[in-house]
Amino acid sequence: MNDTVSFGYEEVSPEEKTERVGAVFSSVARKYDVMNDAMSAGMHRLWKDRFVRRVKPRDGEAILDMAGGTGDIAFRMAAHGASVTVSDINQDMLDVGIERAMERGIDGLVWSRQNAEALTFPDRFFDAYTIAFGIRNVTRIDLALAEAFRVLRFGGRFFCLEFSTTEWPGFKEAYDAYSHKLVPRLGKAIAGDAESYRYLIESIRRFPPMPEFEAMIRAAGFRHSRVEPILGGLVAIHSGWKV
């Protein structure tokens, strides 16, 4: 096991990454959803809608939404009747999600502070596990995938929505320029925090390419894995089954 992990373009100890990622999300929690709209021109809403359609949440299912923070994915799944547990390592993100649920009159969600690498839930407890734009911030991705496998029932499904690297010529270069130069400026203007958004962009660049991450999902024990690229792979939906 390596002694260091990536924090954006830096190599740091696992303990330092966990601490620094926590500071990032505590800093951006209040403006997180506003910034998502600004950075993606609102497209993140369409990506999340598409993601939930792939998950196919059903009435009575128990679903764990990991790194669920502000509740965007959980609200969509609860609307289908699923019993959703929203988990995040960062209490500030959870607090924002709880406030948003109260404002929307959404009851019945379970909010639980959890470390994706060491969940406190029993084995074979959930029908589905979802994580949207969160896995790249986990310190040890392999441990998080192993935990996802552990807490799923047999026949359970894993779905991950995450940024990747677009394979469209021209668009890749344009997006790289936009993300590195403009996103930190947006972060400064809207959230008062350029450095946190510089890290978030760097973390996308350091995340494994689609085939490599799919191999990690299979290595965790999942079968029938699938990758669905969006915008040439700028964003991708990864899935697998516990069978």
Rank of each mutant, 00 (worst) to 15 (best):
M93C: 04
A148R: 08
I217H: 10
V24H: 02
T130A: 03
E147Q: 08
D65H: 04
T70F: 12
S26P: 00
L145T: 01
H180K: 15
A215K: 07
N90M: 14
A177M: 11
A101E: 13
M39C: 08
E103R: 13
A236P: 05
W241P: 00
P14I: 06
W111Y: 13
L186A: 03
F171I: 10
R53H: 08
L64Y: 04
R20Y: 06
S112W: 02
E167D: 14
G233T: 09
T85S: 12
E173S: 13
D88L: 11
A79G: 12
F171G: 09
N90H: 11
A62V: 14
V151E: 05
M66K: 10
R50I: 03
A118H: 13
V12C: 07
A62G: 15
D65C: 10
Y129L: 09
T139E: 10
G170D: 13
L161Y: 10
T4W: 02
W47K: 00
E162P: 08
I73Q: 03
F125A: 08
W168Y: 15
V86C: 04
D142E: 14
F158I: 04
E103K: 14
R50K: 15
A82T: 12
D3A: 14
F75Q: 08
F159S: 02
I217N: 06
N90S: 15
R20F: 07
R150F: 05
S27H: 07
F121T: 00
L109W: 03
E117V: 05
A144E: 07
V183I: 15
N36H: 06
T70W: 00
W168C: 00
